[in-house]
Simulated scan of single mutants.
Amino acid sequence: MDSELYRAITDFAHDTPSWVQHVMEVWTELGLLLFAVLFLVAWGRARHGDPRALAVAVLAPLGTAVAYVCSELVKSGFDEERPCRAVSGALPSLVACPPHGDWSFPSNHSTIAAAAAVGLALAWPTIGWLTVPMAILMAFSRVYVGVHYPHDVATGLLLGTVVALLFVRLAARPAERVAEAMRGSGNGLARRLAGPGGGAVAGQRAAYGSRPRRGAHRR
């Protein structure tokens, strides 16, 4: 059943215009870089938020790394050959088929994409409308270019989601305390990394606003 769905998707891929194939080939290899850029943007935004927001923004990429390690551990227990080599009658993959020993189950790309999408959505809720479709497109692209079965990417999406949610949930409180400590630290680098925080900015504005403006006492 999964092999039939794989053949159907790869047949569809070969029927799509060449520019669509090119876009998907680029996305399947470089799409994860966009998640990395969004991690940096989320951290930059969180530097001006409360310690909890900063903690979650920092935990998002860390949770993604943990999800990748979990995917590799699972992969080491399943010697599943890549469909581009194992499925008879399938059209050639659009990208080079990974070598024997680079097993198929689960999809690391899908795991990383799902963990990144969930982590970013937790750190920056309004970005979820973008990151979740990005992760789904990443998973689909792995089957589209011919290097994964559908069940590989479905498992990767589930694994990345679960790991990211659990990691952020378990580590948020300790990370929040670290963020508070960094903001109150005497180390300049730590304060720059942690940012001023929303409270600090509001306090500065309040203090500035409470000062009498120059010449305000003159009539």
Rank of each mutant, 00 (worst) to 15 (best):
M1T: 14
T10H: 09
T10L: 14
F12R: 11
D15Q: 12
D15Y: 06
T16P: 05
P17H: 09
M24Q: 08
M24G: 11
T28R: 13
E29Q: 10
W43I: 15
W43R: 14
R45N: 14
A46S: 02
A46N: 03
R47A: 07
H48W: 07
R52A: 14
A57I: 05
A60E: 08
P61V: 03
G63C: 04
G63E: 10
C70H: 06
V74G: 00
K75F: 00
E80R: 15
E80F: 05
E81H: 12
V87N: 03
L91Q: 14
L94C: 07
D102Q: 10
F105D: 00
P106L: 01
P106V: 04
T111G: 01
A114S: 03
A115F: 06
V118N: 03
W124G: 07
W124S: 05
L130C: 07
S141D: 05
S141E: 07
R142T: 07
V143Q: 05
H148N: 09
P150Y: 10
D152F: 03
A154N: 06
T155Q: 04
L157R: 13
L158N: 01
T161F: 02
T161C: 11
V163F: 04
A164K: 07
V168E: 00
V168I: 07
A171W: 00
P174T: 13
E176R: 15
E180N: 04
M182C: 06
R183N: 12
G184V: 01
G184N: 14
L193D: 04
L193P: 00
G195V: 00
G199T: 12
A200C: 05
V201T: 06
A202G: 04
A207W: 11
A207V: 06
P212K: 11
R213A: 14
G215D: 10
